[in-house]
């Protein structure tokens, strides 16, 4: 992670978008009246969806949503990097390539040909990748979508010139802290909580359902043990594999755990 440079009195902030659903930018657009307060504390120089437009501006903090999936996008993320002092990758697409990275495991060209009559006209790489595979990233905020609270906390921390804290715990710990009954132990649901990075507040278990790992792998995750457990609670080997090959399929521990099971099937 880069040095949390002490920010200018009113830091210049940009919000960029690559291949994504727009949902992580809503962390800002859904702030309500706090959006107006934020705009008085920082200078929003580029945020096309909200209005200000200056993609080539030099900024103190760049928030980047989306994955890299075209040749033009590689050039653009390099340009953003060169003009930004602190670059934050925001959400599953930016930190792991997103759901669309599922094509990395398949024959992407055949997929395109199945949907578009004239696929040659599309500028589309065979893979969808995380920002960090192309440029240096100073902070990764995982999640699909990213948590708005954590985006604001990151802005706050950077305004004070301190390193934002990255959550590394597993969802399981959040369930224990909030005294949420374990859905895997008590109901045999195929919960991904034991290997998933927290940050959502254990949303799914609190709703009585199994976590589907929209926040990606936690540190030191024992994906093999969980894979066996998923099969133990009744999932077929391929269905257990699909639990890993979903929103964060391109995050390395998940790719391997999922692919092994998918290949066994074939």
């Amino acid at each position: 992670m880069g040095e949390p440079a002490v920010m200018a009195k009113k830091p210049r902030v940009a919000v960029h978008k690559f291949s994504s659903c727009d949902g992580c930018q809503l962390a800002f657009l859904n702030l309500g009246e706090d959006l107006l307060r934020l705009s008085s504390m920082v200078e929003l120089v580029h945020f096309a969806e909200a209005g200000p437009v200056d993609p080539d501006a030099e900024v103190d903090i760049a928030f980047v949503e989306g994955s890299i999936s075209t040749a033009a996008a590689i050039e653009r993320i390099r340009s953003v990097r060169s003009r930004s002092r602190f670059l934050v990758a925001m959400g599953a697409c930016a930190t792991a390539g997103g759901l669309q990275a599922l094509r990395n495991l398949a024959d992407g060209a055949a997929w395109v040909a199945d949907i578009y009559a004239v696929p040659a006209e599309l500028d589309l790489l065979a893979s969808s990748t995380a920002l960090a595979q192309h440029v240096r990233v100073d902070l990764e905020l995982w999640g699909c979508p990213v948590s708005g609270r954590r985006v604001v906390a990151a802005v706050r921390a950077l305004l004070f010139g301190v390193s934002p804290v990255e959550e590394q715990d597993k969802v399981c710990l959040d369930c224990k802290r909030s005294q949420t009954v374990c859905v895997m132990v008590t109901r045999g649901l195929p919960c991904m909580g034991p290997v998933t990075r927290t940050g959502c507040g254990a949303l799914c278990p609190r709703f009585g359902r199994d976590c589907y790992s929209c926040y990606g792998p936690a540190e030191n995750s024992n994906v093999e043990a969980l894979g066996r457990r998923l099969e133990g609670v009744g999932l077929s080997r391929t269905a257990a594999g699909r639990r890993f090959l979903s929103i964060n399929s391109a995050a390395p521990p998940f790719t391997e755990a999922g692919r092994r099971r998918a290949q066994d099937h074939e």
Binding site: T70, A73, A106, L124
Partner: peptide
Amino acid sequence: APRLFEKFLEGRDFGEIPDLVARICG
């Protein structure tokens, strides 16, 4: 940049679909 959603839904169980297609639009 096309995300090819319709292709990676193939092979998925019906129970997985609502959470996957949500990701088409935030």
